[in-house]
Amino acid sequence: MEGTMMLSRVADHLYWMSRQMERAENLARLVRVSEEMLLDDETLGRGSAQEYWTPVLTATAMEASFRTLYPRPVQGAAARYLTLDQRNPDSIVSCICQARENARSVRDKISDEMWSELNALYMLVTSREGADLLERSPQSFYDKVITSSMLFDGITEATLTRDEGWNFLQLGRLLERADMTSRFLDIRSQAPAEADAAVEPLQWGAILRACSAHACYRRQFGGEITIERVVDLLLFSNEFPRSVRHCLRRADEILHDISGTPTGRYSNACEKITGALLAKLSFAGPPEVMARGLHAYIDDLQKQLNTAGQTIFETYVLLPGEVSRHFPRGSRPDTFSDWQREQQQQQQQQ
């Protein structure tokens, strides 16, 4: 055990580093495919561009903050808000900045190559060149973000020791991927009810492309796109690596690897949650989803995923068993003002 233990804070940073990279990648996938669709949509002369973005903003829980900052949004405002707006804490650039901040805090725990890739992406998206690229060729910009994140994943796979750090890093990536895939599925539910039924297959096709799932879909189901089949692939597939079930199964295995408990049993609250969630997905399919309603089903799923993330934090970072008697109930040791900590960190020098 001696060799595998790590600082709880380090585990937390690794978890969030990969989680935020994955979030940036998925947002880039989402915006890229949405922009593509928008081009089609506008040539067809349907709807306004702003209405078009509403489901995307709602599914990613950014609609309210967007409306506050842009009461009367202009052309392109939504895509910009999702991409380069640093005032949006969940924009692509904010996610990359946070991922890098986490990486900087564990610089001694990740490989130089991982750092270089993440830092290069950070330098691009925060630079003038990055903004120019987005202006000139949005598709290249989003491609760059997606490729860089996948490269980061590959470098991690090829350079990082398989210890506890690796496990926490994988957990972050998998839980975020599961969450984002479920959000992609939710976009259609956010569209206005009177949305044209004729474009529906087009939109499901776009969602499949956003998840790199179109080839897999075609192989499995052929050409015709139906909602049940998309749900079957993106929620319940055991083989497709971006499906919610696949991500959860791997996350569950990793949690068991961390605690040393055989899968199928549980030794702590996080294993209990992922195990239950996995069982639910293993013994259900599109009919159950349609019966409950797609949006409601996904809403439940996201709540459980949130609980899983929170529980991992409590189990491995907060260590409630050992620490609770030193921190009064309700006051987490990290509820200090981040700003104040930042100021004090800067004051130390000689």
Binding site: R107, D108, R341, Q345, Q346, Q349
Partner: peptide, 25 residues
């Protein structure tokens, strides 16, 4: 270390890595 916002943070992380010791806040 005071943390990542300190001007010498790179040095703290560098030395911890070179000595193979934990860098803690």
């Amino acid at each position: 270390t005071p943390g990542v916002h300190n001007s010498a943070y790179f040095e703290h992380s560098f030395l911890a890595r070179q000595m193979s010791i934990e860098i803690v806040e």
